[in-house]
């Protein structure tokens, strides 16, 4: 029986683990991404590859040391480099002396079915559909939970309590085995996380950019948490469910996004470059400022970054664009965030 592992992306561990467990596939998730992971990955990755590539490679290596021998990885044929990750990583792992089988999930439900069938000892189509549906309901609750956390933590004085509640619920969700349990957790979200001591003036910042950097706290040095601790609520348009929806139905909703971008960008440019611009434009009245984040050399976001100055000038919305790579230091990010928030507050008070 193959022992399957997968790369981390934020909280993706939870639904993937659920799905694979439901399908009777033994799974070993890699340890949480850390500096050690990155160090391992960048030793073998090409120098100019983007940050997610290096972290993913480190993830596989750490999982292999725990006993995993197969990898599930997403694929694709878009202009973003992500589609080529798996193929190259396969060769790099060989070079590094790890014997692992790479399964690349292309954006085709039949292809995915074949792979799951190969991995699972006990496969049936109904079972797969059922597991998929169950996992999907978990993802939706998880996204709701995270959204609530990012919104609330910026508004309350006792931030640790909210965090504890969140972690408790997340653990419950991980262990949930029936739809009923998931429903109960969904109800609890409203009761558990409540505002007790609200902060006086509330600011909201939208977090847009490349999806991996947005979702993975290790890459963005826990940006959402840092903003929350500055008494700012964070609004995020990119979620895991959004990414998965796009993964299975590529190209859906593009026209809508182009319309939302109001002529600043007139085409899909791969990844989430189009999303970044259309989000900045469409949220300009709803939020007080936008933080745009991307890994170093990310191609779609570079296009967005080249257009952002024009949007800022015409629409009068503050945008902070940050680039993350393996050399990013926590203090540098923190200082810039604080200055950015101060500027927004000053502008509002004027």
């Amino acid at each position: 029986m193959p022992v399957v592992t997968f790369p981390h992306m934020g909280k993706m561990e939870l639904p993937v683990k659920t799905f694979l467990r439901e399908m009777d596939i033994s799974v070993i998730p890699p340890p949480q991404s850390s500096q050690k992971t990155l160090k391992k990955g960048k030793e073998y990755a090409p120098e100019f590859a983007c940050l997610p590539f290096k972290i993913n490679l480190g993830n596989y290596m750490e999982a292999a040391e725990l006993g995993a021998d197969s990898i599930l990885m997403g694929g694709g044929f878009g202009p973003c480099r992500f589609g080529f990750y798996g193929e190259l990583q396969k060769y790099l792992l060989q070079e590094a002396g790890y014997e692992m089988e790479m399964y690349i999930l292309e954006k085709n439900i039949f292809h995915i079915k074949d792979i799951i069938k190969e991995l699972s000892g006990n496969f049936s189509l109904t079972k797969m559909t059922r597991s998929f549906h169950f996992t999907w309901s978990k993802i939706k609750v998880m996204d709701k939970l995270t959204e609530k956390l990012y919104n609330l933590r910026g508004q309350v004085v006792n931030k640790e309590k909210v965090e504890n509640d969140y972690n408790k619920l997340l653990k419950k969700l991980d262990e949930a085995e029936t739809y009923r349990e998931i429903d109960l957790i969904e109800q609890e979200i409203d009761n558990f996380l409540q505002i007790d001591n609200a902060v006086e003036k509330k600011l909201t910042i939208a977090l847009v950019g490349e999806i991996y950097t947005v979702l993975e706290p290790f890459t963005n040095i826990d940006l959402a948490r840092k903003l929350n601790y500055l008494d700012v609520s964070v609004y995020q348009t990119l979620t895991l469910s959004h990414w998965l929806k796009n993964f299975f139905t590529p190209g859906s909703g593009q026209k809508k996004l182009v319309n939302k971008a109001a002529g600043y960008i007139n085409s899909f440019v791969g990844g989430h470059g189009l999303n970044s611009i259309s989000d900045i434009y469409s949220l300009k009245d709803k939020v007080d400022g936008v933080v745009h984040i991307m890994p170093f050399t990310c191609m779609p976001e570079i296009v967005a970054r080249a257009i952002i100055p024009e949007v800022i000038e015409n629409e009068n919305i503050p945008v902070l664009s940050l680039i993350f790579d393996e050399h990013t230091a926590e203090a540098g990010v923190k200082t810039r965030l604080e200055a950015f928030i101060d500027l927004i507050k000053y502008n509002k008070a004027r």
Partner: peptide, 19 residues
């Protein structure tokens, strides 16, 4: 299919327009 261009080629007119 499978012969796409770099995102910078895709966004070039928009980059020029805003620059």
């Amino acid at each position: 299919p499978k012969k796409c261009f770099c995102p910078k080629f895709m966004g070039l007119p928009d980059i020029i327009k805003s620059t």
